[in-house]
Write a protein that binds this DNA or RNA. Structure first.
Lengths: 147, 147
DNA sequence: TATTGTTATACTCTATAACTATA
DNA sequence: TATAGTTATAGAGTATAACAATA
């Protein structure tokens, strides 16, 4: 049966919903919320960060970051340490426990990727990713236009 | 350059993030939140629904639905009407204004799909969707296993 | 003056538990 | 007894505005 554009979009969203369900399970098991997990993920990719830079990356207000970091401190996943060069700023640094969660997140992300796409033949995988790349580029161009 | 499974997953998530940004713009423009928009979307696909069935579809507590419907009523998007056959239940029905938003949602969803995937040649689109279908099936099988 | 983060305030989404009305 | 929805209560995420400390 032939597929149309809407099928493609719907299936992308469907797969994403399933991935989100999987992530939700991880979060429930670790007692983390989605927003706090996102903070840990960013700390994993960017390293220790100021709250300001977290706010920018998350696209969220500085006040919001205060609350998220409060929660993560309470749960023992991060600590606030003084910024060595700017006394206004605080650096958010993962604790040992936080670093463990970050490693788990990375591992389960890669594991999921392998389980989902590990069996796809290389040429088909390339076509798949290329199609996505083009759609992403198309989309970025549209966003520019509208802005 | 060769791609691996992680590239594929990351790009799927990237595209989804862009789509979510687009939807967020729609929501900001209409003064709707994500949760309320989801309710309208379900009313669009299912037709007038009891709060109970909305709770089940959204996978959310009945109390939560009370709040969401309160908000939508306040904004003039839906009304509560008595269920014709069960006096315990209430039917949530879109107003004219709500029906307008539902139509807009559908239209912009299809429009987005065409803009994203409209230029993909049919054979490549078929390969793309087939790859997604297989991943979705793989994932569903994994979820069963874990449960 | 500009920037970093916080306090103050408010709204939304979410949950559980107890309760009312109806089936 | 069971089900549909609400009231009560609580926590988390989100925002804007005003403010303190520092650059």
């Amino acid at each position: 049966m032939p597929y149309d554009s809407t099928d493609a979009l719907d299936k992308v969203l469907h797969l994403t919903a399933l991935v989100a369900t999987d992530l939700a399970r991880f979060e429930r098991d670790s007692g983390l919320t989605q927003a706090r997990t996102r903070v840990l993920w960013i700390l994993g990719t960017e390293g220790p960060s100021t709250q300001r830079s977290l706010a920018t990356t998350l696209d969220v207000s500085p006040r919001n970051v205060t609350g998220l970091v409060d929660g993560l401190v309470r749960q023992g996943y991060v600590t606030r340490t003084p910024h060595p060069a700017d006394r206004r700023a605080t650096l958010v640094v993962p604790t040992t426990r936080g670093a463990g969660v970050i490693a788990d997140l990375r591992a389960s992300h890669e594991d999921l990727a392998h389980r989902l796409f590990g069996d796809v033949p290389p040429r088909r995988l390339t076509a798949f990713v290329t199609t996505l790349d083009q759609s992403i580029a198309t989309f970025a161009a549209l966003m520019e236009e509208d802005a």
